[in-house]
Every structure is written in C-alpha cells, then in structure tokens.
Design a binder for these strands. Structure first.
Lengths: 335, 335
DNA sequence: AAGGCTTGCTCAATCGATGTAGCAAGGCTA
DNA sequence: TAGCCTTGCTACATCGATTGAGCAAGCCTT
C-alpha cells in the first residue's frame, strides 16, 4: 500500500522488529514448528497486511524448485473442444492451488517444443499437452526436466495419455446414421454413407475411419474405398470435396459422416445453396459438437467429446504420479 | 541431455573451463560488450548445446525483476469472443518474445483480484484484463506493483482501456434491422422491434440499448419501454423472456435484436418449436458472432466484435507506455 | 623502464524466500 | 553450581542468472 515498490520480507522484518526468517515462517503457517510466539506472529502478520505484502513467487519458486504454475499447451483457442479443455484445466489447476498458464502453440511441432521448453524453464509443476504433433520429443523434454506430464487428445507412446475413444465414438455415430437412412444399395453410390474430412495417416482420423468402417461392414454398407473422403481438416477442403461428390452423384449422398466441426462448416456452405427438398433426403452426422450446429435446418447427430472428463482424468493421472506410458480412453457422447 | 537434473550455468562453466559470468554473457549475446573471445563463446555454446542447457527463467526473472511472462485475465474461455481475444493475445505476446500466461478468473470480482495479484506476484511484464467486473481495485493493484496494464472489453476509468464501440455497433445493427422489416406501427406491438438480453445497469448493455434507442427514435419506431427486454445474459432467461413475449403478442415480433450469443441460443430453442412460416415474418439480429449461427434457417444479421483489432490496440497502448486513463473504441463489423 | 591502454577474462554481490544450524536466556534437575 | 532442556528467536547459506568492479597479461608509448 505504500509508495513505490513491492515490499519484501526484509522490509516487513524491519518494520516488525524481527528477522526475515521469522516473517517467512509466520506468513507460511510454519511458526509453530519454528517456535515463534503467537504475539510475534500476530505482529508480523499485521505489518504484512498494512504494507500490502505479497510474496515474490519467482524467488520462492527458485528456492523451492517449483513454481506453483500449472502449464498447458494447446494447438489453438478457437476450437470449441480446446476451449473446453482449457476451461476445465483452469478449474482443476485452481482447485490444486496452482496458477494455470495456458500457452497456445499452434500445430507446428517446433513451436510446440519451444513452448514446452519455455514452460519447463519456468519450473511448472505439471504439464498437460493437448494435440501434440510430435509427442516423443515433448515427452523427452518433460522427462529430462522431471516435470509430471500428461498428453491429452493426441496420445504419446511414452507417457500417460488421455484420449477420446475415437473408434467407439465413430462407431456409435455411424451406426445411428445407418439406422436413420434407407439401406444402402451397392449399385447406387448415391445411397451410400460417406465419411468426409480428416487425414488417413493421422491417428485420430484413422481410428474414426476404423469405427466407421466397422459399422458399415456390420450393416453390409461398405462397398468401396470411395466412401472415405479424407480431404483434410479444413473447411474449404471439405467444401470442395463435398461439391465434387455432389456433382458426381448428381445429388447429395444418402448419408454423410463429417469428421470435424471445421469440415462441417464447409459442408454447410455447400448445403446452403441447395433446396430444402434435397436436404430432406439425406442424413447428417458430425464428429464434434457445436450448440449452434444443433439448430441447423436439418436433423443432425453430433458426437461431443467430453473435455471435462478428459481433463479430470488427466489430473487423476498426475495426482497418482503415473509416469510410464498409459492410454486412457474417454467415451464421447452422442447428441 | 544428461542424466538427472537440469544443468545450470555453473555446470556449463565447469565443462567449458570458464566462469559462470562468461557463460551467461556468451549465451545472451552480450559477449561483445564483455569482451569474450569468439572462440570462447563458441566453446561455451557448444557445451551448452550438448548439455541441453536452458536458462532457469525464475532465477533470471528474480535477478532482472521481470519474468518474460505476459499475463491475461479472462472471465471464461468458452465464449467465442474471449477465445479470439486470447488467441490474438498469445500471438502478440509471442511476437514480443513473451510467454503468454492466460488465467481465466470467472466473473467474480474477488476471483479476478486474486488472479491479478497472483500474476503480479510472478512479476508479469504486462497485464491485459478482459471483462473486469470491478476494475478500480484491479488497476490499483497493477499500479502499486508498477505493472503496465490495459483493460479490454470492460473499461476502467483509471487506466487505458480498449472497448468495442457498443453504441455504434448497436446503432448499425438496429438500423439494418429496421430497414429490413416493415415500418412498425404504434398501434400494433407485434410490428415493433425488440431488444432482448443483457442487464440495463451494466455498461455494455446500457450502451447497446442507447444505440438501439437512437435508431428507433430516428425511424419513429420507439413507442414503449416494453421494447427493451433486459432479462440477463443467460440463454435460459432469454428463452423465457421470448416465450413470454410470443405468448403476449400471439406471434413473434416483427424484429428482434438479441444482445448476445448466449441469449441467441435461448432464442433458437424457442424458434425451433415454431413453424417456418412464422419465422419468415420476422427479422433477426444478434450482437455477437458465431459461424454456425450464420447458417440458421432464417436470415440473420450479426455484429462481430473485432477481438483481433482490440488486442492489437491494447498492445499498442502497452508499447507506448500509456498509463493514465484513456478510452479507445474499436468498431465492430456487421456480418 | 615506468606508465598507460587494451584485451580477455573472473569475483563477488545481488535479486527475495526458505530452512538448517545454532545462539542466548531462562528453568529445571542432580 | 554444573549440566541439561526448553523456548524463542537470528544468522547464514542456498536456489541460478546477471552485472559492476576489477585483475592480470600483453602491447605501446615516451
């Protein structure tokens, strides 16, 4: 509350007529062990309050080799799922008395590594890494710095990881769509169920394609690899791919499984040019959730990833001190 | 890269056969001023690389009385606008070589103060505070710790603030809606334009109401205070308020100005129960933006706040060292 | 050959909080 | 009255990086 700079324990000690160690002990509740008189403690606390003292956490962190910071690395903030992850992360961090430091590092492997290094350099007490592009290096960095860490969304083969049950979720969605649409016929590609978006070689997409495939096979609805349109995650790419399909089929396909909310945006821009009647003949599903997509002009099944449960589970791993590889799957819900 | 703990400049110094000061100077590009031989610098750098050395930023921060951290306080992460703010904040922080630490503190004044104090205790080099509930205390805390700070979204009377031009944005939206709908008649409340959501006493709402009011007055379309339904920011409240209005009028009003995306969610759940024909008779606008809302079943005007420009402007203030009160308005765009 | 300048480095204090070791004063026992 | 314990506190080293001060060796000048 005074004039210029923040006060330190030395200032407090002087004004309270005692020593820095006494101040430290008094303010950290360690005064019983240090055998300070209750009156002394009271005096110190009063002075500290008057001076508006707050501990310099960098100094404390340096001394104790920890920081009180909980680090999280995210690819971006604009995606709803990641936003929910960070929200929940902040909640859990607070619950443990840690200050959440959330860094969005994009999807570039180098940038992610830089961010992780940077957080480690601040001696974060734990690290949650979401959507890692190249996880082994990141895990290595954490391990050599002795920082407890968990991967979320994209797993790491060498560390505890919490991921959505992609195969299961895709299965459920595909099954629902197949039930809602007429039985596909091999002879007419327009009656098939299509998978749109993502990239075959990325783990998440691969798993979803697997789940999709399983259900199609089970329903005798898989006829050709053409049903998988892994055009990437961008909305523009999805738009283009769907346009091309629409052109080729001469109509919309009977069923469409869209692999992400971004892709769904591309899908919507195609659909917005089409008449109501054409939409009515098709069934749509999206592997991702957005409350407004729920209000679209046609019925839409969505898979919602449980960011809340995933982060909870991640902290459970951290609390338990799990260090080796461990894969935990969290089931998403169908909306 | 070695076995156990992180290496320090002392370790590097020893292995390179020099002193800690030399290591520090070499690795920080200060070797010219400190007159180290280029070869020595090379040797030190090589050893540092081999050992996988990274500076302990807490120690550096303690010594230099700064941290390399850029702090941001947000009410939450799930709102699209705040997500964009944080995204842009992270970008700007990186561009300045700072590590973004984003803390979501909710809308509770106490929690926000705690978060600000905590960030200050880490010696953040700057602080951007978004959606402050009680700004004076927060500004006070920053000032007494000498931390450069800017308020965003909710202004502070004692510090530089960057806000959306709410009145202007609301004016534009209201004007557009009035142009798109038939001329309201005083005798028939169903032909009026209504304002839905927010709270009269909150600055942002008050300004938007003012802009709304201006345009209505200019178009001879303001007849009664009943046109302002400041029911709060929740989607459930908006849903209830709109239901009640629908009941009372016997139909949807001719025009509806929805004050936030959350409220709009509530509006959508009312609309989803109504037939297409009824929706077609009304004109809708929302003071907030969501890409999926853009694809709704009926035409919808939206105001998009320019989070990017706002954060840019905030950093411009920080760079300029503005300290006193200063209010900067950023115009939102009509979508 | 004494004095001064340059080059290339090292020493040691410092930032603020923590915690171990230990000191001084008083009380109690033998 | 010496020896020991308890109580209530202080001194000092420590964490790791930074930086002002300064030292030693070599060269140049006059």
């Amino acid at each position: 509350m005074k004039s210029g700079q923040k006060s330190t324990i030395y200032d407090i000690a002087q004004k309270a007529g005692s020593s820095p160690s006494a101040v430290s002990a008094a303010l950290n509740g360690k005064w019983k062990q240090r055998r300070l008189k209750p009156e002394t403690v009271e005096r110190i606390k009063r002075v500290a309050r008057e001076e508006g003292y707050t501990a310099n956490l960098q100094a404390r962190g340096l001394r104790k080799a920890e920081s009180g910071l909980a680090g999280m690395v995210l690819p971006d903030h604009e995606n709803r799922f990641f936003a929910e992850l960070s929200q929940q992360f902040a909640r859990e961090a607070h619950a443990r008395g840690l200050c959440p430091a959330i860094v969005h590092a994009g999807r570039d492997a180098e940038a992610q590594l830089t961010s992780v290094d940077s957080l480690i350099a601040y001696s974060v007490d734990l690290l949650v890494i979401a959507g890692a592009t190249r996880s082994p290096e990141l895990a290595q960095a954490c391990r050599s710095a002795n920082v407890p860490h968990v991967f979320v969304d994209h797993p790491c083969a060498e560390a505890p990881s919490v991921v959505t049950d992609n195969t299961g979720g895709a299965s459920v969605l595909a099954k629902t769509l197949l039930e809602d649409m007429p039985q596909p016929e091999e002879s007419d590609p327009a009656t098939w169920l299509y998978f749109l978006g993502g990239e075959r070689h990325l783990p998440a997409s691969a798993e979803r394609i697997q789940g999709f495939r399983q259900q199609c096979d089970a329903a005798d609805a898989f006829f050709s690899d053409d049903q998988i349109l892994a055009c990437g995650y961008g909305s523009a790419q999805a738009e283009q791919a769907l346009s091309a399909l629409h052109q080729r089929l001469g109509r919309l396909p009977a069923g469409l499984f869209v692999n992400s909310i971004d892709c769904f945006e591309g899908v919507l821009s195609v659909l917005s040019h089409l008449p109501e009647t054409e939409l009515a003949r098709s069934t749509f599903g999206c592997y991702d959730y957005d409350p407004f997509a729920a209000f679209s002009r046609f019925p839409l099944r969505m898979i919602r990833q449980r960011a809340d449960l995933m982060v909870e589970e991640a902290f459970r791993q951290l609390d338990a001190g799990t260090a080796g590889p461990r894969l935990i799957q969290v089931s998403p819900e169908l909306v």
